[in-house]
Amino acid sequence: MYAQLVKTDSDRVRGLDEMSAEERAFQERIDRGEKIEPKEWMPEGYRKTLIRQIGQHAHSEIVGQLPEGNWITRAPTLERKAILLAKVQDEAGHGLYLYCAAETLGVSRDELIELLHAGKMKYSSIFNYPTLTWADIGAVGWLVDGAAIMNQVPLQRTSFGPYSRAMIRICKEESFHQRQGYDIMMKMAKGSPAQKAMAQDALNRFWYPALMMFGPSDKDSVHSAQSMAWKIKINTNDELRQKFVDQTVPQAHYLGLTVPDPDLKWNEEKGGYDFSEPDWSEFFDVIAGNGPCNTERLNARVKAWEDGRWFREALVAHADKRAAARIAAE
């Protein structure tokens, strides 16, 4: 899940009878499953929450280029290099669609980027973990993209039209990414003892951070309840996490790898696995900026932006010159 702990500005979810006529009409449209389009009336809280959520999602795509980009120059074969390049290029493309979706809500891409750089907006906690071996590239595709898909598939039905349409495009590519990640894991898990050890180590390090991607339990969260009422969140964090574990554990078994959870157990009655919670204190440390790579990730983005300022200014200056020349010629 690329958006975590998104606030809604509400202290509780109000009933239809407590709403103004406009709000009630809006909520009824959502309840009927209609899509909300950018120029239509929407409550300010809905707009702001969506900007936070879509912005956080876009930032995650962009920052997410870094841990994967870390291995492009070291990819072990030309084919793996090409696949990884294509994947990272897709992530940048996802960022672009999402920033565009956010722009329809009245916030520019540059404003969102400045907020990220100022530490006022977040990106997914997962990208603050390092990719230490090639198997980590497999684990990121398999687990991180796998967890993202869990969240994004339902978001294709989200109430805000541009976000929903961006999700439909993104989901197509993400499922390809997940398969590629799993394919890397297969090769490693069935490879030499050293490769298998690398694959196990990657699973050990990414398992709990992947579970954290869904965020802490939100069954009592007013923000989640409001977001669900607005259909910009479709499932609770716990539902999605359970689904992810149920899907992923058999995949790990197929690879011959061990999920690093001694308490993992099939529960016949609920038809799902019982599993250990991640260490939420670690999650909150990472969110607060104290993950293994927070500083590097943000510094890398800020540096790219600052170093590129002259480039962006030059393109604008050139466009202005051209426009002035055109006007003079008319």
Binding site: L85, A300, F311
Partner: peptide, 11 residues
């Protein structure tokens, strides 16, 4: 990758 001046250039 991930370090260029603007998203379109990364792509």
């Amino acid at each position: 990758c991930g370090h260029s001046p603007v998203l379109e250039e990364d792509i």
